[in-house]
């Protein structure tokens, strides 16, 4: 918001459907407001720094190509003048309308007290990017969440599974713009699916292998599951309520 266009011009213009709006944050190239890391990045990687934007007065965004994210981020972490040792957040943004998904890394350097936002744009037909778990362990769950809610695959991730939704969730990736708020199935179907899960929806494969047959649960549906408490031992394994007592 550095130029003379008022922030509230859009009030006079009235609301626009979000599909017509093109996102164009203001570009600032004045050296006085340049970010030292951005300058260093441009010197180091040159063409690989696709764009540099400044938003909200002093927040700097750097766009990099998705196939070089690991290289650039590891340089940002290890270079002595950068030292971005805290990965605050990994997330994604879907603007809808067929535009590419953005993967957003929020970095912070405790030593230099600097924040930097790095973005990669992924076209919808190639939602794949290298995982940064090797650099920051914090990325582990954050990338799993992005995979779950946006459907972006992180290559070489140690444990890429759905994290918030059930493992057999069949309706898609909820935070994508084409996903309706109330889900794709009817409420009755969602309830039926939720209550007709069996063992493999509660445990992952290696856990079932570890637990073995002796701890296997009866299927949830059917009268043999829990007529009047005979299967107590199994039921306790299920909800675990007795585990601590």
């Amino acid at each position: 918001m550095a130029d003379d266009k008022s922030s509230f011009d859009s009030v006079a213009e009235g609301p626009r459907p979000s599909s017509e709006v093109t996102v164009s944050p203001v570009k600032v190239d004045s050296p006085a407001r340049a970010h030292p890391s951005v300058t260093a990045l441009t010197d180091q990687f040159g063409e690989a720094i696709l764009r540099h934007e400044v938003v909200a007065t002093d927040q700097h965004i750097v766009f990099i190509p998705p196939d070089r994210n690991l290289e650039i981020l590891s340089w940002l972490r290890d270079d002595l003048d950068q030292q971005y040792d805290l990965l605050r957040d990994v997330t994604a943004v879907d603007y809808g309308g067929g535009r590419p998904l953005q993967v957003v890394y929020q970095l912070f350097s405790l030593f230099h007290k600097q924040a930097l936002r790095v973005k990669c744009e992924l076209p919808l037909d190639a939602l794949e990017i290298e995982s940064v778990c090797g650099l920051w362990m914090a990325a582990n769950w954050l990338e799993r969440e992005v995979y779950d809610l946006f459907g972006i695959t992180f290559k070489n991730h140690p444990d890429l599974r759905r994290i918030l939704m059930p493992p057999d969730y069949a309706e898609g990736h909820p935070l994508r713009k084409d996903f309706p708020l109330r889900g794709r199935f009817s409420r009755a179907e969602q309830t039926r699916r939720a209550l007709s899960q069996d063992l493999k929806h509660y445990y992952f494969d290696d856990e079932i292998e570890l637990g073995g047959e002796s701890q296997a649960l009866p299927p949830m549906d059917g009268p043999q599951a829990l007529p009047s408490g005979e299967n107590e031992a199994e039921a306790e394994v299920e909800t675990g309520v007795e585990a601590s007592e």
Partner: peptide, 19 residues
């Protein structure tokens, strides 16, 4: 009406950094 743009604002919550 908010103008086009974005912002990440960190604060110190009771659990840790909330952004």
């Amino acid at each position: 009406h908010a103008p086009a743009g974005e912002s990440y604002f960190p604060v110190e919550a009771s659990k840790g950094e909330l952004g």
